Computed example of a mutant assay.
Amino acid sequence: MPTPPLIQPGAQPDVQVWDPFVRIFHWSLVACVLTNYFVVDDGKDLHQWIGYAASALVVLRIVWGFIGTRHARFADFFPTPSRLRSHLVALREGRIEHHAGHNPLGALMMLVLMATVLGLGVTGFLQTTNTFWGEEWLQELHELIASALMALAGLHAAAALLMSRIERTNLVAAMFTGVKRRF
């Protein structure tokens, strides 16, 4: 797999990175997760449909990861062991790498978050089937995965703020505008 491009010092400071689909996916998924966790009662029809919507969003994002725009494609940022190792060494040494798309740790987090949402979708769906309806262990697993998702989402948000500061790039704004701006 080729190494993803880095934004070199002195290079163009504004980089068009996330397309509208990626941004809409991201904020729609955030809305689904927060609504289901904090607003809607567990087990209600609305909770189930929001969960299905979140799972469908992740499936669409996986497809977009193969056919989408450059920085949306998994090939552009997939967190291989060598990419992760190189990124961690750079961080430890205080070298700042400005990745055009996701850095390797951000890419890993994105994949873990998507897998966690799919795990929630599967465990939630299984609770509606005759085979698993009322199974306490499955309900507990679903709740455990939901709590893990919230912890991971919090870590993701904190890391985005920290990396924005380290890289001097407003990553949160970039997820709204699609443009990474150095400051």
Score class of each variant (00 low, 15 high):
P81I: 11
P81D: 14
S82A: 14
R83W: 02
L84W: 03
R85L: 08
R85E: 11
S86W: 02
S86M: 09
H87E: 02
H87P: 06
H87M: 05
L88P: 07
L88Q: 07
L88G: 09
L88W: 15
V89L: 08
V89H: 13
V89T: 13
A90S: 15
A90H: 10
A90Q: 08
L91N: 10
L91E: 10
R92P: 08
G94D: 07
G94R: 05
I96H: 01
I96K: 05
I96V: 15
E97A: 01
E97M: 04
E97G: 01
H99S: 01
H99W: 04
A100I: 05
G101M: 00
H102V: 04
H102R: 01
H102Y: 06
H102L: 02
P104N: 12
L105Y: 14
G106N: 08
A107T: 10
L108N: 10
L108C: 11
L108S: 07
M109A: 14
M110P: 03
M110T: 15
M110S: 11
M110A: 15
L111Y: 12
L111I: 15
V112D: 08
V112W: 12
V112C: 11
L113F: 09
L113D: 06
M114H: 04
M114G: 03
T116H: 02
T116L: 02
T116G: 04
T116I: 00
V117R: 00
G119S: 02
L120P: 00
G121V: 09
V122G: 03
V122K: 02
T123E: 00
T123D: 00
F125M: 13
L126Y: 05
Q127V: 12
T129R: 06
T129Q: 05
T129N: 06
N130G: 12
T131P: 05
T131N: 08
F132K: 02
F132T: 11
F132I: 08
G134F: 06
G134P: 11
G134H: 11
E136D: 13
W137K: 09
W137I: 13
L138R: 01
L138I: 14
L138H: 03
Q139D: 13
Q139W: 04
Q139C: 06
L141S: 04
H142Q: 06
L144E: 09
